[in-house]
């Protein structure tokens, strides 16, 4: 897992540090009409002239940060403006807790990622609260009588939601519920206000948009697993014993049918992250996804590295939870 995170962060570092990308950084910092020599001098003075592996090591904090001696002043990666070069630490990377500075927001990456992550976390929490129960209910209702009319209807619904990416469902939902063209002004079309003060009116549409796309997939998995359980021997035994259908579903089938969807829900996280970026852009909700778009558009290297480390970490942790949870939920593995 550590190896995966290292390789992935190096991949991001490698891509963001291609020469044309660095030129873009220089022109962002200086001005857009810099000549090639000026760009080269800027990059040399700011530590971009070293080999890529060395700079990755600096970012990570296993190699000492760069310093440039310009006669009267000494500047460097670990030297804050105005600080004496002699007192500055030699190492300042992620391992020392220094995530670098964002060039777009002019702030510490760790504080930006912190606030944005909180916003996205709020969004994700409500998405989960809406998506998981709805998907499980749809899946169980569809799977308990396979082939019935209810099953057909719900299955078609879940296929339709998996076929609707967020930028399509978001556009449709805004048009129907928030635009003046249709006239149903039930909700707000932007969620900017929801960052401080989330209400049902300004927060429901973004949550629903993300939840809908993930819902169909989980519902289909639940349906498949429920349908399989309903044909099992012990369900037939229970029916022959005279247990009511209601009790069979709730007491005998449900618990076994929910093992498979659990892993699916956990593995949905990487997909949800995509949805978050789209929805935050569409509804102008300034969370992690929005920050990612801003950072990527301006090649803000340190912020991009921070965000990608966070998102890769989230994905890897959910994979781990899904493995552990599977063992814990499944008595056949737990006991043996």
């Amino acid at each position: 897992m550590v190896l995966t995170a290292l390789v992935l962060s190096f991949m991001v570092f490698f891509l963001t540090n291609q020469p044309p990308m660095l030129e873009k950084v220089a022109k962002f910092e200086g001005n857009s009409r810099m000549s090639d020599e000026e760009v080269a001098r800027y990059l040399e003075n700011n530590g971009f002239g070293q080999p890529m592996l060395v700079r990755y090591g600096e970012w990570l904090g296993v190699l000492p940060g760069w310093t440039t001696d310009r006669g009267d002043t000494v500047s460097g990666r670990c030297i804050d403006p105005g600080q004496d070069a002699a007192t500055a630490p030699a190492f300042c990377g992620v391992l020392q807790g220094n995530w670098g500075d964002s060039r777009v927001f002019r702030d510490d990456v760790s504080s930006i990622v912190g606030t944005r992550l909180y916003m996205t976390g709020k969004l994700m929490l409500w998405v989960m609260l809406l998506m998981v129960p709805a998907a499980l209910i749809i899946g169980v209702l569809a799977g308990m009588r396979e082939g019935s009319k209810l099953d057909r209807t719900l299955s078609t619904f879940s296929i339709a939601t998996t076929a609707t990416p967020e930028y399509v469902s978001g556009v449709i939902l805004i048009t129907v519920f928030a635009s003046s063209a249709v006239g149903l002004k039930w909700f707000k079309g932007t969620a900017t206000a929801a960052m401080e003060n989330a209400t049902f009116e300004n927060f429901f549409l973004p949550v629903l948009t993300i939840a809908l796309y993930g819902m169909g997939y989980i519902a289909r998995m639940t349906r498949a697993s429920m349908a399989e359980v309903m044909t099992a021997q012990y369900i037939r035994t229970a029916r022959l014993k005279g247990v009511s259908f209601h009790n069979i579903v709730l007491k005998h089938a449900l618990r076994n049918a929910l093992i498979a969807p659990f892993t699916v829900i956990m593995l949905q996280f990487p997909w949800l992250l995509n949805g978050v970026v789209i929805v935050e852009t569409l509804f102008n909700y300034k969370g992690l996804g929005w920050a990612l778009v801003q950072a990527a558009g301006n090649n803000d290297i340190d912020l991009l590295m921070g965000i990608s480390v966070v998102s890769v970490f989230v994905v890897l942790v959910t994979q781990l939870i899904s493995d552990i949870g599977y063992v814990y939920l499944n008595p056949r593995i737990r006991i043996s």
């Binding site: 044309p20 990308m21 970026v277 990612l292 890769v312």
Partner: peptide
């Protein structure tokens, strides 16, 4: 490794004019 990578981040890093140039 590739699957653990958020698709949109990858797109943002790969599909830019600067990347085509590199």
């Amino acid at each position: 490794l590739i699957l653990a990578f958020p698709v949109i981040l990858l797109f943002y890093l790969l599909v830019t004019p600067e990347m085509v140039e590199s």
